[in-house]
Amino acid sequence: MFDLYRPGTSFLHRAPAGGKVLALFVLGTLAFIVDDIRLIFAGLALTLLLYPVCGLTLKNAWAQIRPTLWILIAIFIAQAIFNTWQLGVFVIARFGLLLLLAGLLTLTTRASDMIDGIERGLPFLRPLGVNPAKVSLALSLALRFIPVLAQITREVREAQRVRGLENSVIALAIPLFVRTLRMSDDIADAIEARGYRP
């Protein structure tokens, strides 16, 4: 399956997905409570150390920060102007910590293990009116049809390019949504034909 997982055998790779999500949640909350910059930097250092320990590279760590870099810079500048530059450093250091922690979760956990974790947790949501079987079917269907729809999007784009319409969002989207709706009729039929009762 396509995900951001990096294979490995470290203790974080072997840890259960649910435990890692819980740990991230607790550590993330702590990072928001703590107001001592030294603790944030200590956390940053420890988290960075975990990357090589888990067989990941510093390049992997940098890849967690890079997509958000311009936001971090903008935040730093805003804080430096409206407040103090020290607060700017604090805020972006806390951001970096959260991104790197979340990155550890994403890089060491297969999407399929996450889904298994979610499916195990779903029965606890039953009192809220959540039907675990339905959520799990919707998750599987979405994963199955992302590549199918990506392929169809590519086909529609190519067809419109031939007609000189490649820059028209409307010409791309209308056939795509109509096909998706027709497909959902056929898929629903196929699911029911295989004995599924909602």
């Binding site: 079917l137 199918v148 295989r194």
Partner: peptide
């Protein structure tokens, strides 16, 4: 539905799970 199986024109719409073995198990689980 159990007595009469149905194979559709486009298998892409009939295969509803990402992995081969997951998909084959779907009807039996139902």
């Amino acid at each position: 539905r159990q007595k009469v199986g149905f194979v559709f024109q486009n298998p892409d719409y009939q295969i509803v799970f990402p992995l081969v073995e997951e998909d084959i198990a779907f009807g039996m689980k139902n």
